[in-house]
Design a protein around this nucleic acid. Sequence first.
DNA 1: CATATGTTTCTTATGTATAAAAAACGAGGG
DNA 2: CCCTCGTTTTTTATACATAAGAAACATATG
Lengths: 294, 294
Amino acid sequence: MRTDTTFKRAFNDMIDIIRTLDLGEELPSENALRAQLGVSRTTVRKVLAGMSARGIIISEAHRRIIGEQPRQIERYPKEETLAISEQVETSFMEWMLRGDACPGTEINEAELARKFGVATTIVREFLNRFQKYGLIEKRQNAGWVFKGFTASFALELFEIREMFEMRSARLFAALPDGSPVWKQIQAMRAAHLELLADIDARFQDFSELDSRFHRLITAVAPNRFIESFQDVITMVFHYHYQWNKRDERARNEVAIREHLALIEALESRNIASIDRACRLHLTSARETLLRSIA
Amino acid sequence: MRTDTTFKRAFNDMIDIIRTLDLGEELPSENALRAQLGVSRTTVRKVLAGMSARGIIISEAHRRIIGEQPRQIERYPKEETLAISEQVETSFMEWMLRGDACPGTEINEAELARKFGVATTIVREFLNRFQKYGLIEKRQNAGWVFKGFTASFALELFEIREMFEMRSARLFAALPDGSPVWKQIQAMRAAHLELLADIDARFQDFSELDSRFHRLITAVAPNRFIESFQDVITMVFHYHYQWNKRDERARNEVAIREHLALIEALESRNIASIDRACRLHLTSARETLLRSIA
DNA sequence: CATATGTTTCTTATGTATAAAAAACGAGGG
DNA sequence: CCCTCGTTTTTTATACATAAGAAACATATG
């Protein structure tokens, strides 16, 4: 019943590990592989068995050596490495953002399960987790209501985001000179400049950098509720912009420049300029989002 | 498989409705009852059938009249009116707050299900929903970790709470004189004074009033993320203090006075006094919570 | 024909089943 | 003994089943 996506992902990762080894070389211990692959030893052994069956690994008494280099073909396709719950997430996001789900639409667990081709249990579990994003609401003994990816959603989101980011930026600036974060922020600036230099080709890399930047600022004074809210933001940007590529290059370039301005403000330690830079960035991000919703 | 708690709750509520009617009087239509009881007509009919079987209602051709007044005995006990998912919530809270669950404890779905005497599915569903409270964390393909009801939890909670409440209080004070909220806040003050006058007997009623007060202030500028955060606060106070009765009367009396001060500040429309009153209240609430955790 | 009741169909809440994955246990070898 | 590997037990992810509840449809009655 359970899918073997963990195995398949580990198998693919194992191929990469073997690539770094020479023919005839002995493999690391199961335990070492377990740590490298981030799975249980049970799964490691399954992977090893699979590779043995394919002749990639030759198992002799109490030792395992590389028999032949695996070929690219032997990798499992990406889809098969995603747990059903992850597939449901993608399906749902697509249904929500590109489908005709308008505000107020009733969400039917059974119907979604049929549409996505999965069990109701898993749709239900997903919806329960997804609830925290504030886009759906449960009604007792009935289904869910989709509240809509609307302007008011964006406004409420950014109201909170502003409070949280201003708070973090201020705390950040208050750190002592000796703190290692100042090095990290330097590295961040370098990464931004690099991306900016090659913006035409790499503008799609911004989304990940954006998330890392904001998390770095937040991390100096950890608060689980703020971190959890960042998930909301990440989700919104990840999925929403995945289906809304309009002006993506320009949008990202603007954001990079705003980040650079904020970095400079942080380094100046001047609260007023930090507030200004922070607010400027958030306002522009909000306007961009609002424009793409309308 | 599904429990009939909805029916039992509706049945109990129906007893109260019948109490307001006279012997031989005709009952409202199924549809009217449906609206009053807040359930589906299917459930209403089941309740009516149950009452007919007991002789409380006499069904003649196309009309139903009261046959005899139901007795208190015939009510279903409270426990049977709680959905399994609600029972799981209570069980879990008790396990967490009074049991020996120290920070870092691993939470085992299967074990909890056995302990609570329910299916694993429902424990899993509960944990997924409960995740948003920031007290537990999921680990891929493994169980959950209980992060602990610790001082840092309380501090992080109050950091957010302060931001949110200050924001709401300021927006509240900015409302025009004509706004109906000023009447509501008057009523709130009256409710507080009433409770204060009878504090020795009714101190346990404070918890609900507290929640209502904070929600009233928040409601003037709705934000789904803030509202959702209030659920966290409500949960904390509801359950934590349920198992921590120390100084309850004194604690609540202090809080009531602080609320009254905040009400006065709000009415003064003076931002500085609002901030002061608000912060004072939150500081004292935080200290109280911290003291009870230590 | 509008409203109330009877009937049928669909959905949700909750239990059970099972393969995959993790963890625990155990035995040899350096 | 510590580490590695083989084996057994436990737990999780996911599917499926079904009674309770909601909703839709149908019929009757004033």
